[in-house]
Design a protein around this nucleic acid. Structure first.
Length: 443
RNA sequence: CGGAGUAUAGCUCAGUCUGGUAGAGCACCGUCUUCGGGAGGCGGGGGUCGCAGGUUCGAAUCCUGCUACUCCGACCA
């Protein structure tokens, strides 16, 4: 992409409404624009990152055996009356009436609908297990939206739903999601801790929240320090096994959110120097809730004995749009965002310090073509901004690598590359720079 | 949902108390100088002062109603 043809409305000044760093940086970097309280337009840069995160989530869900579908945003009220949640959900649910006076709602979640899809076609235990997921915009009419995309009213969520023949099988489905979640967050450069969580109004017996530790987090969390440093399980697993040892490894150490916290147990189980109490951002939540929906909605399968039984279900959510905020909270400095390479909107920023200079233009074009061919998704700054502004903008939007090409360096056959995260720079020939960047930059 | 605020140029904000021709910085356009970390000069464009009503010779400013947004708290699969 050439910056001169792109749409990147960066702001020099901080908009007054933004209180936390991720919100400020997303607005300043021209990633989002607020349209109403808790409702945002995604501008090109933000949209690119959103798509990258989506793709990582998709790949890890697919790897764990989940199957992607896409359900609509609008749902019929009658479907929700089957589960009893139409009346139970309260004012957070946006209710809509169409021209025929039909009662609809903008989906805050999809348990009812996916159960409807499942029960219409699955009859036998032989078709289980199944895990269906989608990534779709949700709407929850929060009383007080804040923190930009971290707590919006409209937000993009990946929600998966598992269907199993009994509780033991459902636990295996739960474990698959547990492991897949740890892997997908790790791919985004996040340190995430799973914590026992309250199941809340959705109901159920077994639930974990996945928490990114950050000072600006909305909830207080308590855990064993070792959990923070423990790496992800890795993607190379036997996904048909129960994966129980991986889950046990991470659930045997103390970790709980505020509402589940037991100070006495915390102090008994965790030596003082390993006790960590911090604030966290919830970026995922998984539940096993058994027959909560399958019984009232009559989602049943015939077992080997020919008897029909309600299926055992779980649901698994990742806050896709919230993850942008969480990643920025976890990775930024005074100059702006520092994108992990896996989710960066562009892989390399090619900075032309003197557009119009024949040699510089040619070198930039060569670099741009080379990096494009190498799938490094370069962003070429070919504008006539002053160099200070160019550097500031590229630092702000957080492209992992900068390739700086100007007349002075070029005269002695050199260009400069800079790593956004470390600030480290080196001068070298254009060819060496391109080889180096092709080898390590980008996804 | 309780409490506190805000609304004036694309952005950040003065001006409102005490009614009298709509302001600044940044951004934008033109031009000159400058040119390797958010430069400077000169010239220029851009505003139904959130909306509706009222008071007044005259309202951004005073009064009434409404709307939107923000912050603190409670709430939050």
């Amino acid at each position: 992409m050439r910056l001169s043809r792109y749409f990147l409305p960066v702001l020099k000044e901080t908009p007054s409404e933004a209180q936390i760093v991720s919100h400020r940086l997303m607005l300043r970097a021209g990633m989002i624009r607020q349209e109403a309280a808790g409702i945002y337009s995604w501008l090109p840069l933000g949209h690119r990152v959103l798509r990258k995160i989506e793709q990582i989530v998709r790949e890890e869900m697919d790897r764990a055996g989940a199957i992607e579908i896409l359900m609509p945003t609008l749902q019929l009220a009658d479907l929700w009356r089957e589960s009893g949640r139409y009346d139970a959900y309260g004012p957070e649910m946006l209710r809509i009436v169409d021209r025929h006076e039909r009662e609809l709602l903008y989906g805050p979640t999809n348990e009812e609908m996916v159960t409807g899809i499942f029960r219409s076609s699955v009859r036998s235990y032989k078709d289980l297990p199944k895990n269906l997921y989608h990534m779709q915009w949700k709407f929850r009419d929060e009383q007080r939206p804040r923190f930009g995309v971290m707590r919006g009213r409209e937000f993009l969520m990946k929600d998966a739903y598992s269907f199993d023949v009994d509780e033991a099988a459902a636990k295996r489905s739960y474990n698959r999601m547990f492991v897949a979640y740890l892997n997908l967050y790790a791919r985004m450069g996040l340190k995430v801790v799973p914590m026992r969580a309250d199941t809340g109004p959705i109901g159920g017996d077994l639930s974990h929240e996945f928490i990114v530790l950050a000072d600006t987090g909305e909830s207080e969390v308590f855990c064993h320090r070792d959990l923070v440093e423990m790496g992800p399980p890795g993607t190379d697993q036997d996904w048909d096994s129960d994966l129980q040892h991986l889950v046990d490894q991470r659930t045997s150490l103390y970790a709980a959110t505020e509402e589940m916290h037991d100070a006495a147990r915390f102090e008994a189980e965790v030596p003082e120097e390993l006790r960590l109490s911090a604030r966290g951002i919830e970026v995922g939540h998984i539940f096993y809730f058994g027959e909560k929906y399958s019984v009232p909605m009559k989602a049943v399968v015939a077992g080997p004995d020919g008897v029909e039984r309600p299926v055992h279900m779980g649901s698994y959510g990742v806050g896709v749009s919230r993850l942008l905020g969480a990643i920025i909270e976890a990775s930024h400095d005074d100059n702006g965002i520092i994108w992990p390479e896996s989710v960066a909107p562009f892989g390399v920023a090619v900075i032309n310090l003197r557009p119009g200079d024949e040699a510089v233009d040619a070198a930039c074009q060569q670099a741009y073509d080379h990096l494009t061919a190498a799938s490094k998704e370069p962003l070429l700054d070919d504008t006539s901004e002053r160099v200070g502004a160019k550097f500031a903008t590229m630092d702000l939007i957080g492209i992992p690598w900068q390739l700086i090409i100007g007349p002075k360096g070029l005269a002695s056959g050199e260009v400069e590359i800079k790593n956004r995260a470390t600030g480290e720079r080196q001068s070298l020939s254009l060819d060496s720079a391109l080889n180096l960047l092709s080898a390590k930059a980008g996804s």
